[in-house]
């Protein structure tokens, strides 16, 4: 009975398809398609595709003081960038930052989520505490951390003074400035990552753990062989979001280091902004923007190609 009904549906569908000449849209479909897709196509075209193409166009020229394209230079803007040690170091810095932020955010988020998923009295307080940074805006976080990093009156400086340790000048030393930005970003991201991962861990069916307990599996074994595989789609989602988000990181860098010292935290996005809106060099920043687009597209593809296969849906 069941089988027959399924065949019926299939044959009906087939009939419909033949009528429509193999999914080709007829006039009526075209009309509705344009009504439904039109507005979003218009908006996307105007605000996404047109600027993208325009950026590509500008990157092939030199721009004058007014930001207008004047001299056609072909790919020379790209060639100059790729051979400039400044730009290469910016790329290196960006990759390091993205890697550090992603590993730390996801790692710490997972650790905290795992801790907070234990059923203990008062655990709700910790769940709230761990996710509280979600409600903090970038500017508040930046000012808050700037106070902490202040070399004269900051928390770290006072602590070092009290312990008779040398004061680390967080924001003026290239290495520590990078870590200052990383710490702040991870701190900012942690709340969201924690909350998403906690939700995922809590939705793992309890029966799996019960079965494992019966088999005598250790908590460590359970974590790596039940929790991780079961939340892998969420882990994948969170790490993709973090990678893309940290490539685009701007606010914290602008507020904390402004790309300094000695360009140590001058990430690609910040460099693009500075070249365009500080120096007025739209040609250079357009070329940089295109390069950044290619890099992000490459990483996203890589992730979907290799990581996605390992994900349990």
């Amino acid at each position: 009975m069941l089988k027959t009904s399924t065949t019926d549906v299939v044959s009906e569908k087939k009939a419909a398809t033949t009528q429509r000449h193999g999914f080709r849209l007829n006039a009526k479909d075209n009309y509705y398609a344009s009504i439904f897709l039109g507005p979003s196509l218009l908006v996307l075209g105007l605000f996404v595709f047109y600027p993208m193409l325009k950026t590509l166009y500008i990157s092939l020229f030199l721009t004058n003081t007014l930001g207008k394209t004047t001299v056609y230079v072909g790919l020379s803007n790209y060639a100059k960038l790729i051979s400039s040690p400044d730009f290469i170091s910016s790329m290196g810095v960006t990759l390091f930052y993205v890697a550090a932020v992603t590993v730390l955010t996801v790692g710490l988020g997972l650790l905290l989520a795992n801790l907070a998923s234990q059923k203990l009295p008062g655990i709700g307080i910790f769940r709230t505490l761990y996710s509280v940074t979600m409600g903090v805006s970038v500017s508040v976080a930046a000012i808050f951390w700037l106070f902490i990093f202040n070399p004269s009156t900051g928390f770290f400086a006072l602590l070092s003074n009290a312990l008779n340790l040398p004061v680390v000048n967080w924001l003026t030393n290239p290495t520590s400035a990078m870590w200052a930005v990383i710490i702040t970003t991870v701190w900012m991201n942690l709340g969201f990552t924690f909350l998403i991962l906690l939700g995922a861990i809590q939705s793992v069916p309890n029966t799996l753990y019960e079965a494992a307990d019966v088999e005598g599996a250790s908590p460590r074994f359970q974590f790596f062989n039940i929790t991780i595989p079961m939340i892998s789609p969420t882990l994948f989602f969170v790490s993709t979001i973090t990678i893309i988000g940290s490539f685009k990181s701007f606010g914290l860098i602008d507020l904390i280091t402004k790309g300094g010292p000695t360009n140590a935290t001058n990430m690609l996005v910040y460099r693009i902004y500075k070249d365009a809106f500080y120096s007025g060099n739209y040609a250079k920043s357009s070329a940089e923007a295109i390069i950044l687009t290619i890099i992000i597209a490459f990483f996203t593809l890589l992730q979907f190609k290799f990581l996605e296969k390992k994900v349990n849906y």
Partner: peptide
């Protein structure tokens, strides 16, 4: 003492 560059450096310096 080095307070770095930018607006935050100016503010830190004044505070110092």
């Amino acid at each position: 003492i080095d307070y770095g560059s930018g607006a935050s450096a100016g503010a830190n310096q004044t505070a110092g």
